[in-house]
Simulated scan of single mutants.
Amino acid sequence: MSEITLKFRSIWISDLHLGTSGCQTAYLLDFLKHCDADHLYLVGDIIDGWALKRSWFWQQSHNDVIQKILRKARKGTKVTYIPGNHDEGARQFLGLMFGEIIIEDEVIHTMANGKRFLVLHGDRFDGVVQCAKWLAIVGDRLYTITLKLNHWFNRARARMGLGYWSLSQFLKHKVKSAVSFVSNFETAVAAEAKALGLDGVICGHIHKAEMREIDGVLYCNDGDWVESLTALVELQNGELRILTWQKFFIDQQAELIDLYAPNSPLFEGMTA
């Protein structure tokens, strides 16, 4: 395995969904092993309390993820945990610190270039979660079924030497109502940042990694570790990039000349 370590100023990851069979712990552990940062933001849905209430699923690899994050905090990384809707129970501990990890509802992060970004999970901009939680839970169960189908489908792909492919993500990108929901969500979250006079917003929740300007505000979504296998990272000069870890995981043995270059296979997007 490659011993390359990528050093960033800040990392944002969300929607790990530990406690579910869909969590991609192998990719996630590899990412945590190879990436370091001064700031690590856990942007919600880290542990899936909804799923654990239905049935208990917790493997050693899930413990290993928690331990790696705690170890980073002990070694000096400033770790901020922002709960989401699936781990909303943690919101009763806002402002407290556990194992060097601070729990906050939302924060403002200042980039190295001085730009200020709102950081939040984003579920309060989801009308279904806020107004009809029962419907969100039904949708979550259907999503879980899709992920189980996805698991067996990818086992077959692995036998053929093919990489990970997300059936659930494909369906979300093809269903018109899902595409409309994502667009409305992005617009609402960006509007919140603009109302606060900020340069941008960083969130998770919808499992769709994205970075684009909306009405003068930079909207950034760090994706997830069930479908996208992505994170948002800040370089030392304040540039933001979406990092797709599957590409590095598969190609670790290759001799990558410049991992930080704009055209590196690690990254999907960038801004100054």
Rank of each mutant, 00 (worst) to 15 (best):
F8Q: 11
F8N: 13
R9T: 05
R9H: 14
I11W: 12
I11L: 15
W12M: 14
I13P: 03
D15W: 03
G22N: 01
C23Y: 02
Q24V: 01
T25V: 08
A26E: 10
Y27H: 10
F31E: 13
C35W: 10
A37F: 12
D38F: 07
D38V: 09
H39M: 10
L42A: 07
I46A: 08
I47L: 14
D48S: 04
D48H: 01
G49F: 14
W50N: 12
W50Q: 09
A51Q: 11
A51E: 06
A51M: 10
L52A: 00
L52W: 00
S55L: 14
W58I: 12
Q59T: 11
Q59D: 02
N63K: 06
D64Y: 03
D64S: 07
I66P: 02
Q67P: 03
K68Y: 13
I69S: 07
I69N: 08
R71S: 15
R71W: 13
K72Y: 02
K72M: 11
K72D: 08
R74I: 01
K75Y: 02
G76M: 11
K78P: 00
V79P: 01
T80W: 07
T80L: 05
I82Q: 13
P83I: 03
N85G: 11
N85K: 12
N85V: 12
D87F: 04
D87W: 05
E88P: 00
G89A: 14
G89S: 10
A90M: 15
R91S: 14
